[in-house]
């Protein structure tokens, strides 16, 4: 096994802030060329994890290799920093510079000479369809455009690993799909991606493999479709305002289910027959049959209580 088979190797990774443990000894490996997702509710430890990976936060414990290099050592960390592109959660574009200047100045941090920086910046503006706005001041951009520019900025050094911390949080559906299309384009080119998100649709669409975290620990790891099959089954029957008869029916049959009080979710693999039965006899306030999604897995594993 060559060291570069994995772009990220975390071994018993820990991050504590005083008495608070944000990341509680997690281990995972992200392969080269895949899109690896870190999912979890607010405060699960996603951002703390990703910040250690791009060298922003020092480790509290464990070991961490990125692109085969030990990031706890300053010299190798600098090498890693040259080869990764980071899309942070905030739109921290430079408001004192124009669109194009934002990319060019960032390129200079990666030691790119001015002509090369200008060339790449223009190519990236084309990639994110912003080439007509290159002299626009940043405050005049919409949230979606800013986000696309942050992505372009993260690509200025042609990184081997692209790190995205909640890239579509706060975007409208149009902007989100725009960004997804571009990320899919990058994936097709074989770039390795590490992504945190709490949008399950995003994770299911983009990630080859993912982990779901909560309270600083990893709950599950796997491919999205495998996780859905293993934890939620194929289909789900959702029944609104369930009566006692339905509850008794579910219990007698030993069906896997979640009782939310005003709503019952029944996980099933033999959909049609069971659905007919439920909808004919026990359906008072609407019931639907749908495919199980990653969101079902997520809620099942991390619970339905509100966070923060």
């Amino acid at each position: 096994m060559t060291p570069m088979e994995y772009v990220v190797e975390a071994e018993n990774l820990q991050k504590t802030f005083g008495a608070f443990t944000a990341v509680d000894g997690i281990s995972f490996r992200a392969r080269r060329g895949e899109c690896f997702g870190i999912l979890g509710p607010n405060g699960a430890g996603k951002t703390s994890t990703i910040r250690m990976i791009y060298g922003f936060s020092p480790l509290s414990g464990g070991s961490l290799h990125v692109l085969g290099e030990d990031v706890t050592r300053r010299r190798t960390l600098r090498k890693v920093k040259y080869r990764i592109g980071v899309c942070q959660q905030d739109n921290n574009l430079d408001p004192e510079l124009s669109v194009l200047q934002n990319l060019e100045v960032f390129a200079s941090y990666f030691d790119l000479a001015a002509p090369q920086a200008a060339e790449r910046a223009l190519a990236l503006l084309q990639f994110i369809a912003l080439e007509n706005r290159k002299d626009t001041p940043i405050p005049e951009l919409s949230g979606g455009l800013m986000r696309r520019l942050v992505l372009a900025r993260a690509l200025i050094n042609e990184p081997d690993l692209l790190i995205l911390d909640e890239p579509t949080t706060g975007l409208d559906p149009q902007s989100r799909h725009q960004l997804w299309e571009r990320l899919e384009g990058l994936r097709a080119r074989g770039i390795s991606i590490l992504l945190t998100t709490h949008y399950m649709e995003e994770a299911a669409r983009l990630c080859d493999r993912l982990i779901i975290m909560d309270h600083g620990r990893i709950l599950v790891e796997g491919r999205p479709q495998d996780l859905i099959r293993d934890h939620a089954g194929k289909d789900i029957i959702e029944v609104g305002d369930p009566g006692e008869e339905l509850r008794a029916f579910v219990r007698d049959r030993g069906l896997r289910h979640d009782d939310l009080g005003h709503r019952i979710l029944i996980y099933c693999d033999e959909r049609d027959q069971l659905y007919r039965e439920v909808s004919e006899h026990y359906c008072r306030d609407g019931c639907i049959l749908r495919t199980a999604t990653l969101e079902d897995v997520f809620l099942k594993l991390t619970g339905r209580e509100l966070r923060e």
Binding site: Y54, G55, F56, R74, R78, K81, Y82, I84, V86, Q88, D90, N92, L93, D94, P95, E96, F106, Y109, F110, D111, R153, A154, N157
Partner: peptide
């Protein structure tokens, strides 16, 4: 306010 340092920290700059 501008988080300029945060952005810089994600580059080879320390």
């Amino acid at each position: 306010y501008q988080k300029t340092f945060d952005a810089m920290l994600a580059t080879p700059l320390f």
